[in-house]
Deep mutational scan, measured.
Amino acid sequence: DVEEQIRRLEEVLKKNQPVTWNGTTYTDPNEIKKVIEELRKSM
């Protein structure tokens, strides 16, 4: 579920933690925001 994935990513973003997405680890909050944007567009 895309909305659930977005929620999880936003939680990680709030905690300022790195997130691994599709085999890539993002540590930059701006990169994580881009991933969230892409997910929103795909909905």
Rank of each mutant, 00 (worst) to 15 (best):
Asp1His: 12
Asp1Phe: 11
Asp1Lys: 08
Val2Ala: 08
Val2Tyr: 09
Val2Arg: 05
Val2Trp: 11
Val2Lys: 07
Val2Leu: 14
Val2Gly: 04
Glu3Thr: 07
Glu3Phe: 13
Glu3Leu: 14
Glu3Cys: 04
Gln5Lys: 04
Gln5Pro: 02
Gln5Val: 14
Gln5Met: 14
Ile6Gln: 00
Ile6Lys: 01
Ile6Pro: 00
Ile6Thr: 01
Arg7Gln: 10
Arg7Phe: 07
Arg7Glu: 07
Leu9Ser: 00
Leu9Trp: 04
Glu10Met: 09
Glu10Ile: 07
Glu10Ala: 03
Glu11Cys: 05
Glu11Ile: 04
Glu11Asn: 08
Glu11Leu: 08
Val12Met: 15
Val12Trp: 11
Leu13Val: 08
Leu13Asn: 02
Leu13Thr: 03
Leu13Cys: 02
Leu13Gln: 03
Lys14Ser: 14
Lys15Leu: 15
Lys15Thr: 15
Lys15Glu: 12
Asn16Val: 04
Asn16Thr: 04
Asn16Leu: 08
Asn16Lys: 11
Gln17Ser: 08
Gln17Glu: 15
Gln17Phe: 15
Pro18His: 13
Pro18Gly: 12
Pro18Glu: 12
Pro18Asn: 11
Pro18Met: 11
Val19Ala: 10
Val19Tyr: 11
Val19Gly: 06
Thr20Ile: 15
Thr20His: 11
Thr20Ala: 07
Trp21Val: 12
Trp21Thr: 02
Trp21Ser: 02
Trp21Asn: 02
Asn22Ile: 03
Asn22Leu: 12
Asn22Trp: 06
Asn22Tyr: 08
Asn22Met: 14
Gly23Glu: 05
Gly23Leu: 02
Gly23Phe: 02
Thr24Pro: 01
Thr24Leu: 13
Thr24Glu: 11
Thr24Gly: 04
Thr25Asp: 06
Thr25Trp: 11
Thr25Phe: 14
Thr25Gln: 08
Thr25Cys: 08
Thr25Asn: 06
Thr25Glu: 11
Thr25Val: 15
Tyr26Asn: 01
Tyr26Glu: 01
Tyr26Met: 14
Tyr26Lys: 01
Tyr26Pro: 01
Tyr26Ala: 01
Tyr26Asp: 01
Thr27Gly: 05
Thr27His: 10
Asp28Asn: 08
Asp28Ser: 06
Pro29Arg: 05
Pro29Glu: 07
Pro29Ser: 08
Pro29Thr: 08
Pro29Phe: 07
Pro29Asn: 05
Asn30Gly: 12
Asn30Trp: 12
Asn30Thr: 12
Asn30His: 12
Glu31Val: 06
Glu31Leu: 09
Glu31Arg: 02
Glu31Asn: 04
Glu31Ile: 07
Ile32Lys: 00
Ile32Phe: 06
Ile32His: 00
Ile32Arg: 00
Ile32Ala: 04
Ile32Gln: 00
Ile32Pro: 00
Lys33Trp: 10
Lys33Pro: 01
Lys33Met: 14
Lys34Arg: 09
Lys34Ala: 14
Lys34Tyr: 04
Lys34Trp: 09
Val35Gly: 00
Val35Trp: 05
Val35Thr: 03
Ile36Gln: 01
Ile36Asn: 00
Ile36Asp: 00
Ile36His: 00
Ile36Val: 06
Ile36Ser: 00
Glu37Trp: 05
Glu37His: 07
Glu37Ser: 06
Glu37Leu: 08
Glu38Pro: 00
Glu38Phe: 10
Glu38Gly: 07
Glu38Ala: 09
Leu39Asn: 00
Leu39Pro: 00
Leu39Ala: 02
Leu39Arg: 00
Leu39Thr: 01
Arg40Phe: 05
Arg40Lys: 13
Arg40Ala: 04
Arg40Val: 07
Arg40Thr: 06
Lys41Glu: 12
Lys41Met: 12
Lys41Arg: 11
Ser42Gly: 12
Ser42Lys: 11
Ser42Arg: 05
Met43Val: 12
Met43Asp: 05
Met43Gly: 07
